[in-house]
Structure formats: C-alpha cells, structure tokens
C-alpha cells in the first residue's frame, strides 16, 4: 500500500501528500520538500543573509517534520509551513544587526562583475513593505509565477497579483527603473 502510494505521490493533490507524510511516508515528505522548498527559501531570504538561507530551509523542514502530526488541516499546509519559516528566520536574526548591502556579497553565486548589482536588488527587495517583500522574492529570485505563488503560499490569486504589481512599482522606484521597459500588452485590448 505504501509503495503504491509513493509511486503516485509526485502528481497527487496536496492534502493527500500531507496526510501520507503525517502517516510517516518519507517519500511523501520528500515530495513536500520538492514542492515547497523554493517558497520556504524565498520567505527566509526576505529576512536573513543569502549564505544563511539554505541552512535555515533545512531547519524549517526538520521542524515541520516534527510538528506535522499536530497539523489539523492538510489543506492549510502551505500557510502553516511558511509561518514556521517566518518564525524561524525571525528567531535567527533576533539580536543580530540588520543586514547591510555588503553582507551578501562574499557568498553570492554570481560573477564578480554582477555581484554588486545582485546585492543591490536583493537589498531593495528586502526594503519593500512586508506585504510585497516575500511575493516579489518568490517571483524574481525563486522564479515562481503568480499562480504558483498563490498555490504555495495559500494567498488568493488576487492578493498575489496586487502584491506583485504594487511591489514591482515600488521596486522600479527604488532602483530608478522607468516603466518604459514594461510591455504595452499589459492593458491590451
């Protein structure tokens, strides 16, 4: 039975995967990691240095595994997991000085010629209001589309869309990018 389930887990609906993981199916838990680790990384990266983020992602999933039996509503898994991610990253930075722009530079996995610009954009993303910060990092860093962000955060598609458009507008302002680069198609008829 377990083997049969595990063979299907990749394409299965989220509640079924969560329930299987709650019953101790390790492949189901690995599937949850596959589906949600980028979202957790994005949430964590909004608060901690890049070099600390990957380690904290593993920490979040270890905590999630411990607490999974206590989760009552399988469909609420995305919001529940990201709450753990937020709390762990807040705990992690508690008592530390705020992240400065240069803090990310030494560890960024990009060419030296681009590191400074990447650090600048990352700093601008972290400076966005809370409501837009995570959504924008999930979109621009983790490469998720709006519908994927909605599915993985539990936010409504409408909220994600609002966060993306308002967040992008603020980001353009902060980075001094004019709206001219945007396509006219946005309001096409």
């Amino acid at each position: 039975m377990q083997l049969a389930y595990s063979a299907l887990v990749r394409g299965d609906a989220l509640p079924a995967v969560v329930v299987a993981a709650q019953r101790g199916d390790r492949r189901a838990f690995a599937e949850l990691y596959r589906r949600f680790s980028r979202a957790v990384h994005g949430v964590v990266l909004a608060r901690v240095r890049y070099c600390d983020a990957a380690d904290l992602v593993q920490d979040v999933f270890a905590v999630a595994l411990e607490r999974l039996p206590q989760l009552g509503e399988a469909a609420a898994f995305p919001g529940w997991l990201l709450t753990i991610a937020r709390n762990r990253s807040i705990d992690f930075v508690r008592g530390k000085r705020p992240i400065a722009m240069g803090d990310d530079l030494p560890e960024l996995p990009v060419a030296a010629s681009r590191a400074s610009e990447v650090a600048q954009v990352l700093t601008a993303l972290r400076a966005l209001p809370d409501a837009y910060q995570e959504t924008m990092i999930l979109r621009l860093v983790e490469g998720m589309t709006g519908p994927e962000i909605a599915e993985q955060t539990g936010l409504s598609p409408g909220s994600v869309r609002v966060n993306l458009h308002r967040g992008m507008k603020l980001l353009r302002d902060q980075l001094g990018i004019s709206e001219e680069g945007a396509s006219d198609d946005k309001a096409s008829g």
């Binding site: 680790s37 980028r38 957790v40 990384h41 994005g42 990266l45 890049y50 983020a53 990957a54 992602v57 960024l108 996995p109 990009v110 681009r114 610009e117 990447v118 954009v121 990352l122 979109r139 621009l140 860093v141 983790e142 490469g143 589309t145 709006g146 519908p147 869309r161 993306l164 458009h165 992008m168 980001l171 353009r172 990018i177 680069g181 945007a182 396509s183 198609d185 946005k186 309001a187 096409s188």
Partner: peptide, 27 residues
Amino acid sequence: VDDYLWDRSGEDKDVARLEALLSPLQH
C-alpha cells in the same frame, strides 16, 4: 490579458532582466 509579471505571458524586459540577474540565487 498578457501580463509577464503575473504568468510570463506577454513581455516585460525589466522583469525578465531582474529574473535572469537573480536566478542563480534560486534554491
């Protein structure tokens, strides 16, 4: 409606450039 920021339909050069710049940081 095309909306690159939302679902990569249409085109937005600024968003595409930022995506490419930041993609190495993806988990």
